[in-house]
């Protein structure tokens, strides 16, 4: 079964609820090694997304993803704006005008999103960033053949594991990199939010 524009919108609404629910947790994580704004910035971005989704109905999955991109870019205000914005923009371009997405298309979109994040932020695996969650997610999605729900579930599991792997890392990108060795021992907030978003998408797909 494919994933329609309405399914994507439902997944985005679910993601907005998860972001709201985890706002304080993300702020706390960012307080430890960053500028303490990640939770609030994402909440602001996804709240703005909700009102845009109330105002307009995207005609295709690709258009829905593009709406996320433009909303996050213009409202987030921190690094997550350009990074998630680029990720959703590339994902949108990867799925094109298709009316429905299958598992393979979703895997391709994730791959494009990762490439966008890497191009924008220049981080690689091991830098203690969202790339550490997104990279294993893309790999898992590519090898998980089957339904959208199956692909996203594999991606979410791998992203959660990838996010946990950032705990011992010393940050080499972003605000946390200024802390040097003191950044070790903390979960990276960007990797955590990536894992949360993918879990929200996977749960929405499973329930659809």
């Amino acid at each position: 079964m494919g994933c329609t524009a309405a399914d994507v919108v439902a997944a985005l609404r679910a993601a907005a609820a998860v972001v709201q629910e985890h706002r304080d947790e993300l702020v706390r994580l960012d307080q430890a090694i960053g500028d303490a704004d990640h939770g609030e910035n994402l909440r602001r971005g996804f709240t703005a997304l909700l009102s845009r989704l109330d105002a307009e109905e995207p005609a295709s999955p690709g258009k829905a993803l593009k709406l996320v991109a433009t909303t996050l870019i213009s409202t987030v205000g921190g690094a997550a704006g350009p990074l998630y914005g680029t990720a959703f923009l590339r994902a949108s371009a990867a799925v094109g005008d298709a009316a429905e997405l299958d598992g393979e298309a979703v895997a391709r979109a994730l791959q494009a999103a990762l490439e966008g994040v890497v191009a924008r932020g220049k981080a690689v695996v091991g830098d203690k960033t969202m790339v550490d969650a997104l990279t294993p997610a893309v790999t898992a999605a590519a090898s998980a053949e089957g339904s959208v729900a199956g692909v996203l579930s594999a991606a979410a599991d791998a992203a959660a594991e990838g996010a946990e792997s950032t705990v011992p890392m010393v940050a080499r990108k972003g605000r946390a990199s200024y802390l040097g060795e003191r950044s070790a021992g903390h979960l990276d907030p960007g990797a955590r939010s990536t894992a949360l978003l993918l879990r929200a998408f996977a749960d929405a797909a499973a329930g659809a």
Partner: peptide
């Protein structure tokens, strides 16, 4: 000034 300002500027 800092990394995310660079990303915003580049976008």
């Amino acid at each position: 000034d800092l990394g995310s300002a660079k990303m915003t500027a580049e976008m």
